[in-house]
Amino acid sequence: MTFKLIINGKTLKGETTTEAVDAATAEKVLKQYANDNGIDGEWTYDDATKTFTVTE
């Protein structure tokens, strides 16, 4: 399955996707991606669209 991350950061905005077997696995990968890029904020997840959003 494809999961999307929408980034609403102070210095970085955009989106990325990852392939994962489930939402929990995708969340780990996407949170690591955000952490690697210095993004720390509030996370939400929409199961209907398989989209995570992080807002700083």
Rank of each mutant, 00 (worst) to 15 (best):
F52L: 02
L30N: 01
K13E: 06
I39L: 07
K13F: 10
T2A: 07
L30I: 03
I39M: 04
I7N: 02
V21A: 14
A26I: 02
D40S: 14
I6G: 02
E15V: 12
N8I: 14
T44F: 10
A20I: 03
A23I: 11
T11V: 12
T53H: 07
V29R: 11
L30F: 15
L5T: 01
A24E: 13
A24S: 11
T53G: 03
D36I: 09
T55W: 12
D40A: 13
N37H: 15
T49L: 08
M1H: 14
A20W: 02
A26W: 01
K31V: 06
Y45M: 01
Y45L: 02
T49R: 06
Y45T: 00
Y45P: 00
L30D: 00
E19S: 11
L5W: 03
K4A: 06
N37R: 15
T51S: 05
W43I: 03
N8T: 08
M1A: 12
T51E: 05
T11A: 09
L5A: 02
D47G: 08
M1G: 11
L12N: 09
K4I: 13
A23N: 05
T44I: 09
E42L: 14
K13Y: 11
F52M: 01
G9V: 13
T11P: 04
E15K: 06
K50S: 06
D40R: 14
A24I: 11
A20F: 04
E15N: 08
A23V: 13
F3W: 08
D47C: 06
E15C: 14
A23F: 14
T55I: 08
K10M: 12
G41N: 01
V21Y: 12
T18P: 01
N8H: 10
T16N: 05
Q32S: 08
V54S: 02
V21H: 12
L30C: 04
T51R: 03
Y33E: 03
T2Y: 09
A34S: 05
L30G: 00
F52R: 00
M1T: 14
N8Y: 12
N37P: 01
A34I: 05
G41K: 01
I7K: 02
D46A: 04
T53C: 06
W43N: 00
N37A: 13
A34Y: 02
A48I: 11
T55M: 05
T17E: 10
T16K: 12
D40I: 14
A34R: 01
E42F: 11
A24G: 08
T25D: 09
W43Q: 00
L5E: 02
L12V: 13
T44A: 12
T11F: 14
L12G: 10
F52P: 00
V29M: 12
T16A: 11
V54W: 02
K10L: 15
I6R: 05
Y33C: 05
K50I: 03
D40W: 14
D22R: 03
G14Q: 12
F3D: 02
A48K: 11
G38S: 07
E19L: 14
V29P: 02
K31T: 05
T51Q: 05
W43K: 00
G38T: 04
I6V: 13
T53K: 05
F3T: 02
M1P: 13
W43M: 04
T16Y: 15
T25Y: 06
G41D: 01
A20V: 04
T53F: 08
N37F: 14
F52W: 08
E42D: 11
A26S: 02
K50W: 06
K50H: 13
E56M: 11
T16F: 15
A26F: 01
E42M: 11
A26R: 00
T18L: 11
E19H: 13
T55E: 06
E42Y: 12
K28M: 12
G41Q: 01
K28C: 08
Y45S: 01
E42I: 15
K13P: 05
A26E: 00
F52V: 01
I7S: 03
N35D: 13
D46F: 04
I39F: 07
T51P: 00
K13G: 06
K13W: 10
I6N: 05
T44W: 08
L30R: 00
F3K: 01
E56D: 09
I39A: 04
T17D: 05
T51H: 03
T25R: 07
K31S: 04
A20G: 04
G14I: 15
T2I: 15
V21R: 11
Y45E: 00
A34Q: 02
G41F: 03
T51C: 06
K4Q: 06
K28H: 09
E42N: 10
E27Y: 15
K28L: 11
T17I: 08
L12I: 14
G14Y: 15
T2E: 11
E19W: 15
L5N: 01
L5I: 04
D47F: 08
D36M: 11
W43L: 03
T49V: 06
T17G: 04
E56F: 09
A20Q: 10
A24M: 10
T18A: 11
T25E: 11
E15I: 15
L5D: 01
L12K: 12
K4M: 09
K28G: 07
E15S: 11
F3M: 02
G41A: 02
Y33R: 04
E19M: 14
A34M: 07
V29Y: 13
N35H: 15
T11G: 09
V54K: 00
V54I: 09
K10C: 14
Y45W: 04
T51G: 02
N8L: 13
E42S: 10
F3C: 02
T16S: 07
G38F: 07
V29K: 10
D46Q: 05
T17P: 02
G14P: 07
D46N: 10
W43H: 00
Q32L: 07
K10A: 12
Q32E: 10
M1L: 13
D47M: 08
V29D: 06
D46P: 00
E27V: 07
A20C: 08
T25C: 08
K4G: 04
I6H: 05
T55L: 05
T49S: 09
I7T: 04
T2W: 12
T49N: 09
A23G: 05
